[in-house]
Write a protein that binds this DNA or RNA. Structure first.
Lengths: 199, 199
DNA sequence: GACAAAACGGAACAGCGCTCCGTATCGTAA
DNA sequence: TTACGATACGGAGCGCTGTTCCGTTTTGTC
């Protein structure tokens, strides 16, 4: 898949060169702005940084979620693909699950405000929630099923709630030394772990 | 402590009757609006409901947090006071901790958007975060210490991070049938529990 | 009843998301 | 090369926020 196709969406018919260029410029500008101002940075700020008008942003990315998804698509895909890989290479399914959750947490905590946006119920972020979940919940489910099947995880825990729980633990200021999301996620996973019957 | 004193703050010198009346009216109006529109409802909406101008709100409650704290002060106090009581009446410290966390979760999930506001890093909610923490972290610490001391909880978990973890698990839409904060909090507490040595 | 202090109300300003349409640019066919 | 329709662009404008500020009203007191 060529970069231009990917940025534009493969099924759309070829568009003008300036449009493709602007889309690329916007993605780059948005990525930069997200780092400093978070994913809920003012649209005008992104437009200014990219040197385009606001109309251009809304034409290419009708909702904020579209822009955020486009910026982070690669990393979400990488996370999704890491699931089966970990399951294959780790010695136990639960270890694979732990390492995959680690990956997910790393992703969230390094993106200022992304976890907050994920759980947001306004601001055009609903589609973001949906995309992350559509892509990652099945992967999480696979790992969870494997762990439960091996008797390493408590049965009855849904992938969706685990994902949201982990995501929720990552919200909030990331520069507070008193709160490390990873420690809480560890606790959560410890609670998920099923002690294997000694038989 | 008389109601008027309490609403005004006991250390302030006596103020005009209309000011006291408006403060009461505002508290009642805010409580009503919070139920329907959440704690981040527009100031104008609260002012309108109370039949006062916006200036009046800002004069009595300079920040949004001041208003929210005033509305929920009683319930926070009740929650704080329930800690030692539970520790005294429950058979084990960990059970007391569990029941206290339940109380806290109940409080959060029944207040639309309160958990979200608590972890917010903008919108004048910082003081809200501070108040909740100042009041509840010591209580949580007491329960946690008791449980750890009895060998029922893993040592090394800070009250602050537990409170924030539980609070974080409660953020987000409360009408999503796929996600029940209580289930995740259960998992978290299960991870916190230390299996008592069989000796 | 008069007067100063206290409190009130809402106009006004700034920042935001989002829309809409006149204008500029691009691709193509003559 | 030029001309022209399709496509994309830019930003003014609208509505909704939070917050401030000051002319006006109400209150308590003498």
């Amino acid at each position: 898949m060529a970069a231009a196709d990917e940025a534009r969406g493969a099924s759309a018919r070829p568009k003008r060169a300036d449009a493709v260029r602007n889309q690329q410029t916007l993605l780059a500008a948005a990525a930069e702005v997200f780092v400093t101002s978070g994913v809920d940075a003012p649209i005008r700020e992104i437009a200014k940084r990219a040197g385009v008008g606001m109309g251009t942003i809304y034409r290419h990315f009708p909702t904020r979620a579209d822009l955020v998804v486009a910026v982070y698509r690669h990393q979400v895909e990488a996370c999704a693909e890491a699931g089966p890989a970990l399951l294959a290479e780790e010695e136990s399914p639960f270890t694979a699950l732990e390492r995959w959750v680690d990956l997910f947490v790393d992703f969230l905590v390094t993106k200022h405000g992304l976890a907050d946006a994920l759980r947001s119920d306004s601001g055009g972020f609903e589609a973001l929630h949906a995309y992350f979940l559509d892509r990652l919940v099945p992967v999480c489910g696979q790992l969870l099923d494997a762990a439960a099947g091996a008797g390493e995880a408590r049965p009855g825990v849904e992938p969706y709630e685990l994902m949201r729980g982990v995501g929720n633990l990552c919200v909030g200021r990331d520069d507070d030394p008193r709160y490390d999301p990873r420690r809480l996620v560890d606790l959560l996973l410890r609670g998920l772990r099923e002690v294997r019957p000694s038989s």
